Amino acid sequence: MLYSNSLSRLIDMFKKMPGIGHKSAVRLAFNIVSMSNGEADEIIETIKNAKEKIKYCSICQNLTETDPCDICSNEKRDRSTICVMETPKDVIALEKTREYFGLYHVLHGAISPMDDVTPDMLKIKELILRLKDERIKEVILATNPSIEGEATAMYLARLIKPLGIKVTRIASGIPVGGDLEYADDVTITKAIELRHEM
């Protein structure tokens, strides 16, 4: 046995995180074990605190410590536009550009039959309820330009168009198969500016 049971379990826990392979998990586990008890306790307390305090905004479904979130409660935001994103990380990527001033809606994923992710598992019902607000004139579909993101955008467009709301899709400034969180500010800004109606 290469590692003790406790160390093996710690490595396995880190490997469950996205983007963490075996070598990175081993490195993180050894780093945790070599910390002082005070440092390790601080990490544990920070994780517990985040899990207890962070929740979904009751309006946009973004992660927040206050409900509604700062964006939804900001009266200066354009209330006629909702940008639909797959993840909270995508919202952060677009906010960093300082080029979009409307509201958001976070789906928490994309439709993916291969991964058994169906529309009812996403925050789509919550989006449709929001669209009853007569102030909303446009929904921007900013799902990732992947097969799953495109399928989700098409599904949403079919649901929203009958409501008489303009539906646009971000332009392909984002490479196919890419993720918004890794795109640079200029690329994301251009993708929003060059969006097209669906």
Rank of each mutant, 00 (worst) to 15 (best):
S4N: 09
L10R: 01
L10G: 13
I11G: 07
D12C: 04
K16Q: 15
P18S: 07
I20R: 07
I20Q: 05
G21K: 07
K23E: 02
K23R: 13
S24V: 01
A25F: 12
V26Y: 00
L28V: 03
F30P: 01
F30L: 12
N31T: 09
S36C: 01
A40K: 06
A40I: 04
E42W: 00
I47Y: 04
N49W: 01
K51E: 15
K55R: 15
Y56R: 15
Y56P: 00
Y56V: 07
I59G: 01
Q61I: 00
N62S: 11
N62K: 06
L63K: 04
T64G: 08
T64W: 06
T66F: 08
D70W: 02
N74W: 01
E75Q: 11
K76Q: 11
T81E: 13
E86D: 03
T87V: 06
K89F: 12
K96N: 14
K96F: 02
E99W: 09
L103K: 03
L103W: 02
Y104C: 09
L107N: 01
L107F: 14
L107A: 04
G109F: 13
T118A: 09
P119T: 05
P119L: 03
P119W: 06
L122P: 10
I124G: 04
I124C: 10
L127R: 12
I128W: 10
R130I: 02
R135V: 00
E138W: 00
T143S: 09
N144W: 11
S146D: 07
S146R: 04
I147N: 04
E148I: 07
A151H: 04
Y155E: 03
L156D: 03
L159E: 14
P162L: 07
G164H: 09
K166S: 11
T168S: 13
A171F: 09
A171S: 15
I174M: 14
P175L: 14
P175Y: 06
V176C: 12
D179Y: 10
D179L: 06
L180A: 12
E181L: 10
Y182R: 00
D185M: 15
V186E: 10
V186Q: 14
I188C: 13
K190N: 14
I192Y: 06
I192S: 03
H196D: 11
E197P: 11
